[in-house]
Design a protein around this nucleic acid. Structure first.
Lengths: 231, 231
DNA sequence: CGTATTCTTGACTTATATCAATGTCGGTGG
DNA sequence: CCACCGACATTGATATAAGTCAAGAATACG
């Protein structure tokens, strides 16, 4: 299947790549449409492919033995994901589920070494990406160790506005469907607590809620909440 | 300074490497003795070198803006650490402090690309290492999100027995000085709670405590505690 | 329209932090 | 060598953040 390079050219990951290289890369790629609720791959499944999200939004989750779920990260357009191969894993450590109508490119895992050998820029990018993820994970650990729930939720929401924020008249909208439960699973709390917190914020005019909707009206106010340790 | 290759040959990281390669590598390395309490590098400092721990034990910590400290990880002999360069960082994200008399090799950061170009095995190892760390971080996030303190502490202690356990008649000893405070900083709780938990375990014959000492008498019992969700 | 998610809100419970006091170990120096 | 000091640890009492339990309301969807 032929994929047009204009689709990916815009992503920082590819902007330095020559036309030929890019074409070559894309000849090996397959594209796949993923409706909301459908999984791209499942935790524990053989890591047969790696992916690039072109459009939409995914959440990567893990379930514990006792059946509880957490959200490991959110995948945004332009992100590589599922490259377990790069880390020498045989299986996917989590499940990737579309939360909005999504389109992803996929390559067979065994092409990964090729991928980075022929495109050193990508190797560097991939390393950087992993480094960032490690840092994000440590940030999250730090927050969960030292901050109370309200501030953790504030940080999580602020991060979402940066990664998936769309400016509107009233403020910045989180540009994909996200439930209270999702936020709870990103911050290590319960949907009840998240609901109470958001209600309180709504009362103060910081945000505007809705079913699977969230709009941040006062980024500065939220930032203060997130950063100023309770004095 | 000449460093004998017998010092590093034993580590899995180097066991596949030819004598010449290894010699070449070591000509660029400097060794450094680090007494307990001394830092190898500090959070935010320029990432001028990367390191290999030959002997001893380090803890990597981060401090929050509000001054709270957490332990990001423990460095064991044979571990590479401080390779911020690999992740395209300019500064060290944490502080590495010796908790026991330690010896580390160091290389200037700019040698890292060389390091992996000339020793593809190392590149692979490094990737794997980072992958493992990312996984560990996610495991920790999962535990902190879903498990109560006692089980988190149990998991942390079990991990330590695997990474730094020394068999003794009475059980498995954590082979470096570790305080209740340290365990608290690894699990996101307070030293008081850790102390209570360890006292309770000691009452049940699971562990044996002491000033900066910990001996696990019943690994199986601890594992049950860690894994069996409270039924 | 009715049914199923998702969300809100109140009442109650509990795990764990916080506050406070005392105990114990081990190294230093008199 | 012993006494003392400082770091580390224990333990009790109390406070509180956040979880659990429970019920109902709002919104989307077929």
């Amino acid at each position: 299947m032929k994929i047009d390079k204009s689709l990916v050219r815009a992503f920082p990951l590819f902007d330095k790549m020559s036309d030929e290289s890019l074409d070559k890369l894309l000849t090996h790629a397959a594209s796949r449409r993923v409706p909301p609720g459908e999984a791209v791959f499942e935790q524990g499944g053989a890591a047969s492919h790696f992916f690039l999200l072109l459009h939409g939004r995914l959440k990567v989750t893990q379930v514990t033995t006792s059946g509880q779920q957490i959200i490991v990260r959110v995948v945004h357009p332009g992100d590589l994901f599922g490259f377990a191969e790069a880390l020498k894993r045989k299986d996917y450590p989590g499940t990737a589920i579309a939360v909005a109508e999504s389109i992803a490119l996929s390559w067979p895992s065994q092409l990964w070494p090729d991928f980075i050998d022929h495109h050193p820029k990508l190797a560097v990018s991939a390393m950087q990406t992993i480094g960032q993820r490690l840092e994000e994970a440590h940030t999250r650990i730090r927050e969960m160790s030292t901050e109370e729930v309200e501030r953790r939720v504030a940080h999580a929401v602020l991060r979402l506005t940066k990664q998936a924020g769309k400016q509107e008249e009233a403020g910045i909208r989180i540009d994909f469907p996200i439930s209270r439960q999702d936020i709870a699973e990103m911050t290590g709390t319960t949907l009840h607590t998240v609901s109470r917190i958001l209600s309180a914020w709504e009362g103060k005019g910081l945000v505007e809620g809705g079913r699977q909707k969230l709009l941040v009206r006062d980024v500065q106010g939220l930032s203060n909440l997130a950063d100023n340790a309770k004095e």
